[in-house]
Structures are given as structure tokens and as C-alpha cells.
Amino acid sequence: MPEPQNPRKRRALLLFNPNARRGRDGVGKVVERLAAGGMSVTVEHFSALPEIARDIVRLRETADLIVLCGGDGTVASGAMAVVESGLPLGIIPMGTANDLARTLEIPMEFDEAADLIVAGKTRRIDVGSVNGHAFFNVASIGLSSDLARKLDAGLKRRWGRLGYAVAALRVLSRARPFHATITEKGVTTEVNTYQIAVGNGRHYGGGNVVQEEASIDDGNLDLYSLEVSNVWKLAMMLRSFRSGRHGLWNEVRTAKSTQFDIATKRPRPVNTDGEIVTSTPAHFMVHPGAVEVYVP
């Protein structure tokens, strides 16, 4: 009798950002663990975020799964191409904040994250989008967008999460409220605010919680608007942002919906998962269960 054929190895397309803060010495370890788990690994480097989607579209027919190594911005940049490919996604957290990994309880250690992909358990999660640009964690207008522009790559690489604090102090010292209209389910509300954030996942900003009951697979977006009289009052509210209970403050407007539209008097930048990708007017929507991702 002929011997049974060995099953074909799972083919992993691994995209690696050599500029990621934690990635310069880790990708070799990841490839080794995936290969030891019986996978055939193709490694593609990229130097700019738009290359990620192009590489996925170009090489998707040669892969059974996609592995993205980098931070939240890296994963978000490839999201729509991953959705289009229909392939499951593995995440190796090599960024500064790694909030999506935190939401999904993916280990921060490279070998453990790789072993999780080998194990093969998956979960379908939602993807948020604003003007056609994907995000997993949060998209925001105001303080976070100003912070993203101040927090250059050199500051992140040198100081890591401390770099966020340095840049945040610079932004807060110059912050001014802005006027915006928020439209939800056909109802428009006028606000004066320092920030409007729309969350798809649970964690953002290095461990803050979008909303106490937020989940990345609940089919909804969670919005909050910071309508404080003085931006320095945020210092008193920081603890509630870590737990997601900031909506208990009178100065914080909250809402939950599948879509939001936000307009401002002049175009304002929109930050998605740490990257400025578009500007107002902004249309936000959720794509339920759009991505299959490897989880513990």
C-alpha cells in the first residue's frame, strides 16, 4: 500500500516592520517558532505603511494565513487587505502601545505570540472604519490627533511609552476646544469639545479603556466627547479613563451606535490607531466580524 502523504504545511505570509520599536531583534525568533510549529514562512519587509496592503494583495494567493509584526498602526494599515483576502490574521506585537494585542490578550513575548498562531485558535472581531480607513482600537479628533503629530518616530523609539507622556504635556499646554456636530441615527448634536473619540475595540492609548463594557466583537462603536471647561481637569479624570468609566462625568458625552458622522467648521485631522489618515467631515462605521484573528 502507498504511504499516506504528509499534509501540506500551512503557509504564513509574515510582514515585518524593521522600524518597529521592539522588532529589530525579534523577527528571527518568530520565524523559528512558526517553522518549528510546521509552517512554511515567507517574510516580506516594508518601510512604509501603505506597502502592507499592497504586499497582502500581491501575495495572498501564496498564503494560508497572514502574520503582521508591528504596532497598532501597522495592523490597522493592513486590515482592509486582510478582510479582502479572507485569510486569518496573526499578530506579533512589536509596537509601543500594542492596544489591540492587549484587547485580545495576545502575549507581548514574541515566542509566546508565535506559539499562539501555531495553536490555531481563532476569533472573529469587528473592524471600524472612518472615510474608508480601517482601525481596530479607536479613531479620534482633537487631543489624540495633536498627540500623534507631536509623537514622532524618533521619540517613540527612544522613550517608548514615556514618549507619550512627554508629547502629551506639550499638547495639553496648547490645547483649545473646537466646535463640532455629531450625527447619530439622524439626530445632530452641536458640541464644544477638546476631543471626540470613536472606539471599535476596548483598549487604546497604552491601556486606557474606550468604554467600561466595550468589546471588539459587539457590532457597535463607542463614542465619547470631552466637553470640559478646562483641559487640565483631565488630570482629575485620568483614573476613570483607565477603567472606561469616564462617561460618569457630566463633562463627557457618550454614545453607542453602528455609525457616526462628525463635521467641524474647518477640516481637522483624524487619528486612527496612532496614525493620521484622513480629516473631517468623517463618516465612521463598524464592520462586524470582518476579520478572523488568532487568539489565546
Score class of each variant (00 low, 15 high):
Pro7Thr: 05
Ala282His: 15
Ala101Thr: 04
Phe241Thr: 02
Ile262Gly: 02
Pro281Asn: 15
Ala167Ile: 12
Glu32Ala: 05
Ser47Gln: 08
Met39Ala: 14
Thr62Glu: 14
Val231Glu: 04
Ala139Glu: 01
Gln211Arg: 05
Lys185Gln: 10
Gly70Leu: 08
Ala255Cys: 06
Gln259Met: 07
Lys9Tyr: 05
Ala20Thr: 05
Arg245Tyr: 11
Ser215Glu: 10
Leu151Trp: 12
Gly201Phe: 00
Gly219Val: 01
Glu275Asn: 06
Thr96Phe: 13
Ala53Arg: 03
Ser243Glu: 15
Glu84Ala: 12
Ser40Asn: 14
Tyr224Ile: 10
Thr96Gln: 10
Pro4Asp: 02
Tyr204Ser: 00
Ile276Val: 15
Arg24Tyr: 06
Arg158Leu: 10
Asn131His: 07
Lys29Val: 05
Met108Gly: 15
Ala97Met: 07
Ala114Phe: 07
Ile66Asn: 04
Arg8Lys: 07
Val57Thr: 14
His179Asn: 06
Gly95Ala: 09
Ile125Gln: 00
Gly90Ala: 08
Asp146Asn: 06
Phe135Lys: 08
Ala48Gln: 04
Thr42Cys: 13
Ile91Cys: 00
Glu112Asn: 09
Glu227Val: 03
Gly160Thr: 04
Ser279His: 15
Ile117Asp: 00
Asp25Glu: 06
Ala114Glu: 02
Gly247Asp: 11
Phe110Lys: 00
Ala167Cys: 12
Ala214Trp: 02
Gly160Asn: 08
His287Phe: 07
Tyr294Ser: 01
Leu116Ser: 10
Ile52Arg: 02
His246Asn: 03
Val270Ile: 15
His246Glu: 12
Asn137Thr: 14
Asn6Pro: 01
Gly128Thr: 12
Asn17Trp: 12
Pro4Asn: 09
Lys256Met: 01
Gly23Asn: 02
Val127Gln: 08
Val130Gly: 04
Gln259Val: 07
Leu172Arg: 09
Gly160Asp: 06
Asp115Val: 03
Leu34Trp: 08
His179Val: 12
Asp152Arg: 02
Leu234Ala: 04
Gly86Pro: 04
Asn131Cys: 01
Arg170Pro: 00
Ile91Thr: 00
Gly128Asn: 03
Trp159Tyr: 14
Leu65Cys: 01
Val198Arg: 02
Gly28His: 05
Gly73Ala: 08
Ile216Tyr: 09
Ala153Thr: 12
Ser40Met: 15
Thr96Val: 11
Ala36Arg: 09
Thr258Met: 00
Ser173His: 09
Gly219Ser: 03
Val138His: 01
Glu84Leu: 01
Asn98Pro: 01
Gly206Val: 02
Asp222Lys: 05
Val277Trp: 11
Asp55His: 13
Val43Ala: 09
Ala114Tyr: 11
Gly132Asp: 14
Met1Trp: 06
His283Thr: 14
Val82Ala: 11
Ile141Phe: 15
Ile106Gly: 14
Tyr294Lys: 06
Thr264Gly: 03
Ala168Leu: 15
